[in-house]
Design a protein around this nucleic acid. Structure first.
Lengths: 206, 206
DNA sequence: GTCTATACAGAGATAGAC
DNA sequence: GTCTATCTCTGTATAGAC
């Protein structure tokens, strides 16, 4: 609260906890592990954040904000074409995944374990409304004859699939493609942006 | 072993454990919970499967067999066209996901937590070799002029993305699309097969 | 604010009766 | 093979000194 950097220790804890929770999930994470990695002791974790649950909730709250919400600006934008929108969506989504590669898996993981989280995650994001806008826009384009007959739901699903899954299955694809380092995989994903856009546009353009 | 149905109780335990592990992961699962759902007590779990770890390993071993391996027949098949292969891959993959919707998330989950599992999962599957065959086939098609210039790695990635991610993010998409029941979602996925095939073919065909 | 020591609870595993 | 009772360990959480 008193702000002015929110106390250094507190930030270090959150940063560390985020990493551990991302990799191990709520159940797999150990307070001891977080403490060790943060260079402090367990008691201090509880001093700053009453309990493991509480700490987790805070991380989740912060992270879920980053999950999908950024699409609103692009989709509701008036002054770019439908194709340009798709291009921007793909680029933005892949960029976001590069910055927070564990996020989608982390979110899905906790939703599967505790389905009641779903409303919390999606509900507040307002993305549902934006999604419906996109569906309508797609229908409009079909009517205009700029794209072939396709449902917006399917199209958005395809976009999200191709942007997101390569990060969820990252270790799998890395192995398959013989890629050794994270850095190299990121490069491949950077280049992939163009490919995905081209793939999608070609699939729908008339 | 003595076979003849592998003892009923043992099978019930495995079936139950699979469900619980799928939903909660190794760490989140509780032996008490498995016992309750299976209608027996904890001690019996340990009687049949020494430990939680052991039980988990057995489930994982069985399930990983189902993960991707089935693609080999299709890809190495000689008497169908490249486009027919894609059609069959998509159909087969989505069918498999319908039958075991939690599998990909489950596998990825454990790989992220214990990266050493990766070799075990991919290594034995032989899918890596099959993947390379597909990459070569794609190049050949490009050269033949039947499809536009695209790398096999990207194409296969796109296929796997579109087949798999809708099941990982199932609760998310269900909410987004206003779908209430699992059964209805499966119907949507059944219909989706055709859509995905069309999407991919349109995206690459010359 | 940060530490050490410790209480407490939960979950995996075992002993032993039937 | 199946059960109840119990042991043991691990991990969260707290008390209290500095």
């Amino acid at each position: 609260m008193s702000n002015s950097n929110e106390s250094n220790t507190q930030e270090i804890i959150k940063k560390t906890a985020r990493e551990v929770f991302f990799q191990k999930g709520l159940d797999g994470a150990r307070m001891q592990d977080i403490a060790d990695k943060a260079g402090i002791n367990k008691a201090l974790l509880h001093y700053y954040f009453r309990s493991k649950e509480k700490l987790f909730e805070i991380i989740l709250d912060e992270e879920k904000q980053n999950f999908m919400r950024y699409l609103e600006d692009i989709i509701t934008s008036q002054d770019i074409t439908f194709f340009e929108k798709i291009e921007k969506i793909v680029e933005k989504q892949i960029d976001n995944m590069i910055n927070a590669p564990h996020l989608p898996h982390f979110i899905m993981n906790e939703i599967i374990k505790r389905p009641e989280l779903l409303n919390q995650v999606i509900g507040n994001s307002g993305f549902k409304r934006v999604f419906e806008v996109f569906v309508k826009q797609t229908s409009a384009e079909v009517k205009k004859g700029t794209i072939r007959n396709i449902k917006g739901e399917q199209l958005m699903m395809n976009i999200m699939c191709m942007d997101t899954y390569p990060f969820i299955a990252k270790p799998y694809f890395m192995n398959l493609m013989g890629i050794e380092s994270e850095a190299e995989y990121i490069k491949v994903m950077q280049k992939r942006k163009k490919e995905v856009v081209e793939f999608i546009i070609t699939a729908i353009k008339l």
